Simulated scan of single mutants.
Amino acid sequence: MLKELESLGVEMNNSKKQMHGGGELAGVTFLFTGSLPTLKRSDAEAMAEAKGGKILSGVSAKLNYLIVGEDAGSKLDKAKKLNTVKIITEAEFLKMLDA
């Protein structure tokens, strides 16, 4: 049955998983907050994902890096309270990508 499905054009490999499985930042989680000085948030997120990083939607114990811009607000406060999240600037994030 699987061979028949494959012959009909069904993709049998999980290409999405393979695409994001590697990279220098594989397994590292990011969240962006506030107004970034030079990047659009969507561009910054795409840059992290291109290196294998994962974007989270909120601050939690699973978050590795919070990238803060101007007027960061409650996400920054929550990250400081957790004390397990590395809080960095956009410039530090860009250096991380170049490393």
Rank of each mutant, 00 (worst) to 15 (best):
L31S: 07
F32S: 04
F32H: 05
F32Y: 05
T33W: 13
T33D: 11
T33P: 14
T33L: 13
T33Y: 08
G34T: 07
S35R: 15
S35H: 06
S35W: 01
L36I: 02
P37N: 08
T38Y: 14
T38F: 13
T38D: 13
L39E: 03
L39C: 04
K40P: 03
K40R: 12
K40F: 14
K40A: 14
R41I: 11
R41D: 03
S42A: 14
S42M: 01
D43K: 13
D43F: 05
D43Y: 07
D43T: 11
A44L: 10
A44P: 06
A46C: 06
A46G: 14
A46T: 13
A46E: 08
A46L: 12
A46N: 15
M47V: 01
M47R: 02
M47N: 03
A48N: 12
A48R: 10
A48L: 06
E49M: 11
A50I: 00
A50S: 09
A50G: 01
A50P: 06
A50L: 04
K51E: 12
K51A: 14
K51H: 08
G52D: 01
G53N: 10
G53D: 10
G53Q: 04
I55H: 04
I55L: 12
I55W: 02
I55G: 07
L56F: 02
L56S: 03
L56E: 03
L56R: 00
S57N: 04
G58H: 08
G58R: 09
G58Q: 10
G58V: 05
G58L: 10
V59R: 11
S60F: 02
A61K: 15
K62W: 00
L63S: 09
N64E: 13
N64R: 11
Y65L: 05
Y65D: 07
L66F: 14
I67L: 10
I67P: 08
I67Q: 11
V68K: 04
V68Y: 01
V68S: 01
V68H: 00
V68P: 00
V68Q: 00
